[in-house]
């Protein structure tokens, strides 16, 4: 099953099992079913609980927060993650802060889904990976869809926690299959919010990457193994922030070299935060500083040959690990 279909089915189950769940977004209703068809069939089935909205990203995230505060649960789809900037105030200053700024824990069960990333030729304002702008906001969780994780479980986990979350979904990942078991070379294991992808136990190279990078990371891993004779374990967290590495402590403990890859542009990145966290934990055991792989400090051009230069490619990951 493709990731897009898995997300769609997860939303169907979520709304079927929990009548308090409402979904809002631009063009999410049938027959259109959302720009990436993730919400297809939902409005036909759940009627007024699915609302196609005006082009008001800030407004609809606010409405979602209002529903969440009043006792419902809300999922807001922002058509392109780039437009999350229009909802930054509602996310940072209202939804996230409300969980603590009133002096007692307040539940804000709100998920803002953000189709994200380049490699589809949509140009500078429809291709970005803005995860880094949401890292370290008190009260806000940052998730990213991966082909290994059950989206329904992640949505349930977010709602149960009562903390609002931004949920990034890579737009190319939508077209890829969900993954389980392995690819013939590597085994795929999911544990406590992490996917562990490896050819053998206790590899000296470990790569951490969000779910959107999975296809490129897997290509790099295969090339490294078959052509460079380097076995590297890939770790994919479902929740990018706050990042809890305890479930994969054993994998990290065996590492000599750690690499972090991400789609965001260089500077003030998620990967830098991961490196800080891991340096504290692994200092003295690593034989090299943590490697960081990101998109360059650049906008993302539209033309395919230019866009390829400004997005992370499998060869970039392989090169960094094989240094």
């Amino acid at each position: 099953m493709r990731v897009a279909e898995h997300l769609n089915r997860s939303l169907h189950s979520l709304m079927e099992n929990d009548p308090s769940v409402h979904l809002l977004g631009e063009d999410v209703s049938d027959p259109y079913g959302g720009a990436f068809k993730i919400t297809k069939g939902l409005s036909d089935r759940f009627g007024p609980r699915v609302m196609s909205t005006p082009l008001s990203e800030g407004g609809i995230v606010g409405v979602g927060a209002g529903l969440a505060l009043a006792g419902d649960r809300a999922i807001v789809e922002i058509m392109f993650g780039d437009f999350a900037t229009l909802a930054f105030d509602q996310l940072v200053n209202f939804a996230a802060k409300s969980t603590t700024m009133y002096g007692r824990p307040v539940d804000v069960p709100l998920i803002v889904r953000l189709p994200t990333g380049g490699r589809r030729g949509y140009g500078p304002t429809h291709s970005q990976s803005l995860q880094k702008h949401f890292i370290g906001v008190p009260g806000l969780s940052v998730y990213e869809m991966s082909p290994f994780h059950d989206a329904g479980r992640l949505f349930a986990e977010i709602f149960a926690g009562g903390r609002p979350a931004v949920f990034f979904e890579d737009k190319v990942l939508y077209t890829k299959p969900m993954l389980s078991d392995g690819d013939g070379l590597h085994t795929f294991e999911v544990r406590d919010g992490w996917a562990v992808i490896r050819a053998e136990r206790d590899t000296e190279d470990v790569l951490l990457a969000p779910g959107g990078l999975t296809d490129r990371a897997l290509t790099a891993l295969r090339d490294l193994l078959l052509e460079d004779e380097i076995a590297c374990t890939l770790l994919v967290p479902a929740r990018l922030h706050p990042l809890d590495v305890t479930p994969v402590a054993d994998v990290l403990a065996a590492a000599k070299r750690v690499h972090v890859a991400e789609d965001g542009t260089a500077g003030g990145t998620w990967g830098a935060e991961v490196a800080r966290l891991l340096h504290e934990r692994l200092w003295g055991r690593l034989t090299a500083p943590i490697t960081h792989i990101s998109a360059p400090d650049s906008i993302i051009p539209t033309a395919a040959h230019l866009e390829a230069r400004c997005t992370v490619q499998p060869a970039d990951i392989r090169r960094a690990i094989n240094k």
């Binding site: 609809i60 209002g66 505060l69 509602q90 209202f94």
Partner: peptide, 21 residues
Amino acid sequence: FLSTGVQGESLPVAVGVALRH
């Protein structure tokens, strides 16, 4: 009763609560 310090921020949230009402 709920107040926030950012101008205009409360109105979309108020719409959400009103929809529940």
